[in-house]
Amino acid sequence: MLKKRSRNSRGSNEINASSMADIAFLLLIFFLVTTQIVEDKGILVKLPPWSEVPPDPLKLIPRNVFSVLVNAQNQLLVRGEPANVDELKDRAKEFIMNPTGREDLSQSPTKAIISLKNDRGTNYKTYLEVYNELKAAYDELWDEESMRKYGVHYSDELPLDYRKEIKGKIPMVLSEAEPTSYGEE
């Protein structure tokens, strides 16, 4: 009898916490509904600093320049010939590395320059597609170089001096010229 009573009194001293879960659920659902997870991804680029004086026209050997022109009709002209976006990456890679030592491709990866020029009427989508392909060419080359040298894929986790060495061997030189304005909207 005494035992039973003591248990009873202990039970009544507890605060009923079962509604706590409901309150917390309510808050949780409120946050779930009102917030949206915005993940921002994109192509990271570094712009050249602005200078008032136009840069001196460099004397470049034509074989070291991979010129890509995009017109207002979103058509591509690669090294003076019409081309397709799909083939751009492979052509750029071949141009940079020049594995067969062709006379008309770059002398060495460090001398290779990719020149991109678009029109003010070019679609942003096309521009980004082209930019993406050119970046992909470099990314793949860096990855191949990293695999050959260190046996690991190229990524941001790679030690800084490894990355520096790879980038020193195959520097990304992508120069963007002032766009033409034939097809402005």
Binding site: D40, K41, G42, I43, L44, K46, P49, W50, N132
Partner: peptide, 14 residues
């Protein structure tokens, strides 16, 4: 952006 010396740029894409 170049004139204001903001050179780190990200073309947001999916």
């Amino acid at each position: 952006l170049r004139k204001s010396n903001q050179l780190r740029l990200n073309y947001s894409a999916k």
